[in-house]
Design a protein around this nucleic acid. Structure first.
Length: 418
RNA sequence: GUGGGCGUAGCCUAGCGGUUAAGGCGCCAGGUUGUGGCCCUGGAGAUCGAGGGUUCGAAUCCCUCCGCUCACCCCA
């Protein structure tokens, strides 16, 4: 028997309420903030992701679904959304549009990882990107969209973590300082952190091992090493977030796993959750990425949120989502003549805008009404041999259990009224 | 990649060495010559994840593999 591949899942009809609810809220907030939808290909040139995410990251080193097509091109199923949007920005000359360009996407994301709660090999992200402007007011706008989106979904108890990891000017010196600090405490570090020290010292800051946390708390803070421009940017952002009444907390241990981030980074997670995969949304500024991909130097900032994790949290917080709509009419028939009349009637009713289910399989009336009941239809139309002779139908109210006989020609009119 | 837990009908669960593997939900049919929801009766549906071993005898014990799941690394 075939099964859905590991780490993928079928989103069954009973789950779809959560998905349509989330997507509808996403589209609504994007309209409100004037972000326009963009869809990019499911796969891209492998090099796009290697260049943007970074050679040394876990995503590139071990998590990409890369394949060679028949022409020998190396293609990768997108492991995140930002790189593709930047590629499209450059490819279509969006720098000629009024800046910033505000875009959003809602796409499947693929990473080869061991699945666990809230982590899948195929998952979906809703993301927004604002490209072509460095004003910290835009950072605030992106964070505001994210926060208001969660508010609109009805999620409570979220924490907004904020940090600045500097830019090409100030980060190298900070990293040196950080390496120097940790080198003094080498023996106290967990094996993972000893390994991380050489490759990516920022990562030591968010180690969750009890033994490493005190060291990380005492570690030099990136915000103390920012250059004038970055420090100024961060100050202004904090001021704007305060103006927006967004309850952020500056978290010096917040770093991100992708190389392209500069200055602002942020994460939103449910309160009290310590595991990394509790994060429901995250983002940051990436002022060098577009230039790195062959465009002109172009600052930009974005945010993405995992839809599966939102569904998980909506369920955990017992948020009600819209129920699937029931058909308004179910049509039952008895005998071939009645079946043919029913087929014509169904068509008439649907053209007048009513959602209708027609019984099928020539089953007993009892079985047909039982099915009518389980579909949740409010009205049942019953057509039998007697009704055919008289040119009538029986109209049964499924809630009240009352029924009446009406002329066949009246059915559309009567049902359209109810 | 590493470690823990778990695999019995579509779903949930019982059985944990001894006859034809049990129950609930759901599905189908009957109880009403053309009438749903409640109730009653019946039916279909499981090579007990796969393979190997121990045993007179294995869903049950052991081994291997596969799958699911949770955690670590890392990420939404």
């Amino acid at each position: 028997m075939y099964r859905a591949p590991r780490g993928t899942s079928d989103i069954l009809p009973r789950e779809q309420g959560y998905w349509s609810y989330i997507r509808q809220k996403a589209a609504a907030i994007c309209e409100l903030y004037s972000y326009q939808r963009i869809d990019t290909p499911t796969f891209e040139d492998a090099g796009l992701f290697v260049r943007s995410i970074g050679e040394e990251t876990d995503i590139v080193e071990k998590e990409m679904y890369t394949l060679e097509d028949r022409s020998g091109d190396k293609l990768t199923l997108r492991p995140e959304g930002t790189a593709s949007v930047c590629r499209a920005y450059v490819e279509h000359g969006m720098h000629t549009l009024p800046q910033p360009v505000r875009l959003y996407y809602d796409a499947a994301i693929f990473r080869y990882e061991r699945p666990q709660a809230g982590r899948y090999r195929e998952h979906h992200q809703f993301g927004v990107e604002a490209l072509g402007e460095i004003d910290p007011a835009l950072d605030a706008e992106i964070i505001d969209i994210a926060w208001q989106f969660y508010v609109n979904l009805g999620l409570d108890g979220l924490i907004l973590n904020l940090n600045s990891i500097g830019c090409n000017v100030c980060r190298p010196a900070y990293l040196d300082t950080l390496r120097g600090y940790y080198a003094q405490h080498l023996s106290m570090l967990c094996p993972d952190c000893q390994r991380r020290l050489a490759r990516n010292p920022l990562r030591l800051l968010d180690c969750k091992k009890a033994s490493c946390i005190p060291l990380a708390d005492q570690a030099p803070r990136s915000t103390d090493y920012l250059c004038g421009e970055c420090a100024d940017h961060f100050d202004q952002l904090e001021r704007y977030l305060a103006l927006l009444n967004l309850p952020f907390i500056v978290n010096h241990r917040l770093v991100r796993g992708l190389d392209y981030y500069t200055k602002t980074v942020f994460e939103i997670a449910p309160e009290g959750e310590v595991v990394a995969q509790a994060t429901i949304g995250a983002g940051g500024r990436y002022d060098n990425l577009i230039e790195q991909l062959g465009g002109k130097p172009t600052p930009a900032i974005g945010f993405a949120t995992g839809i599966e994790r939102l569904v998980l949290n909506l369920k955990k917080q017992k948020r009600a989502v819209p129920e699937p709509v029931s058909p308004s009419v179910f049509i039952a028939y008895l005998g071939q003549d009645a079946k043919e009349e029913a087929i014509k009637l169904v068509s008439l009713l649907r053209r007048s805008g009513l959602s209708v289910i027609l019984a099928c399989g020539d089953r007993s009336l009892k079985a047909q009404l039982k099915q009518a009941n389980s579909t949740g239809a409010r009205q049942a139309v019953i057509i039998g041999e007697d009704e055919i002779k008289r040119g009538t139908v029986v109209l049964r109210d499924m809630d009240k259990g009352e029924q009446q006989t009406i002329q066949l020609g009246e059915v559309v009119k009567v049902l359209s009224r109810s």
